[in-house]
Design a protein around this nucleic acid. Structure first.
Ligand SMILES: [Zn+2]
Ligand SMILES: [Zn+2]
Ligand SMILES: [Zn+2]
Ligand SMILES: [Zn+2]
Lengths: 147, 147
DNA sequence: TCCTTATTGATAATAATTATCATTATCAGT
DNA sequence: ACTGATAATGATAATTATTATCAATAAGGA
C-alpha cells in the first residue's frame, strides 16, 4: 500500500517542522490533517469548526498559531476569492494558478506554465512598472456541480 | 474646462444612486470622493481615517453602509492582494486586470483584452470545470518606487 | 524515564464589523 | 421656497474575528 498524495504532503510538512525545531503536537497534526484533507480553501474559523468534530480538539488560539507557523514555513498560503476571502491552501512547487468552483468552493491547482511574457512586457512598456509576479485564478462550475 | 475622469465617475455614480432611489447625502459624497481620488485600493478603515481630515466627517457606520450600497450597485469591488487583503476599487466597464505596486500600493487598471481562450479551454478539458470568469493580477514595482 | 522548555488551553484584550434607534436632512410634491 | 414623509445618519451597543497573556501540559533529546 503506497502512500497517498495527502500522506506525502503531511509527512513532508512534519519533516519541515522538525527541521525548523518545531514540535509535532496533536493540535498541529489535527490542523494539518484538516487542511490537507479539504477540497476547498478553508478559513481559520472553518478549520476550527471541523476540528470540533473530533474527540479532542485544539483551542481556537492553537489553530491561529499553527496557521501562522505553516505560513511562515511557506507550507500554506491564503487564497482569495470573491465573497468569502482568505481561504487556506497548501503551497505547491513552482508557479501555480487556481480554479475554483463558485458553487461548492472545490479547488484545483493548475501548473502555471502558460506563456504570458509578451503580455507582461507590453504592460511594463505601457505603465513603467516592473512586473515580478502575478496571480491568475479561474472561476466557474466544477463537474460535480454541473449536473 | 472639461470634466476630469474622476468628475465623470462621480457624476455617473450620483446618477446611479438617484436612479435606484438612493439619496445623495454628504457622507456618501465624502466616501465616493475619497474612493475616486485614491491611487490605491483602500480598506473601510483607511477610508474612515482619510475622512477624519475633513471638517465634518461621517460616522464609521456610514462608511460601511455606503460601501455596501456601492458594491450592491456594482460601482465598486474588492481588490485582493498578498498581505493586506480587501481594498476598495471602482469597477470599470468590461473585463479588466490589475497591476499593483508592492511598495506603495499604487494600482493601474489594464484592459483585459489578451486572448487566453485557448488556455481556458485546455483547463476545461483537463478538469471538467466550466470556466466563466477569471482574475489576473500583476504585482511589481511602479515607476515612482523604482528610483 | 526524566528534564527542559516549547506549546497548549483558557481567557482577557484588541480590532473590525454589524445592529439598534432616536434624531436629522434629502428631495418629491406642492 | 416650503413642507412632510421617510431614508439616512451618528452614537453606541452588540457581535465576531484575531491576538496577547500566563499557568499548566506534553514533546522529544539525554
Ligand atoms: Zn482577498
Ligand atoms: Zn462545485
Ligand atoms: Zn501564471
Ligand atoms: Zn509604487
Amino acid at each position: 500500500m503506497e502512500p497517498s498524495t495527502k500522506d506525502r504532503i503531511l509527512s513532508s510538512w512534519q519533516d519541515s517542522l522538525h527541521r525548523h525545531g518545531f514540535r509535532v503536537t496533536r493540535p498541529r497534526q489535527q490542523v494539518m490533517e484538516i487542511i490537507t484533507s479539504s477540497t476547498t480553501a478553508l478559513t481559520p474559523q472553518e478549520i476550527y469548526q471541523k476540528s470540533l468534530e473530533e474527540e479532542k480538539f485544539p483551542g481556537i488560539a492553537s489553530i491561529y498559531r499553527t496557521l501562522e507557523m505553516l505560513e511562515k514555513l511557506g507550507l500554506i498560503q491564503q487564497i482569495h476569492q470573491p465573497g468569502g476571502c482568505h481561504g487556506i491552501w497548501p503551497t505547491f512547487e513552482g508557479h501555480n494558478h487556481y480554479l475554483i468552483c463558485r458553487d461548492c468552493g472545490q479547488m484545483k491547482v493548475i501548473e502555471g506554465n502558460e506563456d504570458i511574457t509578451g503580455y507582461i512586457s507590453r504592460i511594463e512598456d505601457q505603465t513603467g512598472y516592473r512586473v515580478d509576479d502575478h496571480w491568475l485564478q479561474f472561476f466557474g462550475t466544477c463537474s460535480d456541480c454541473l449536473d
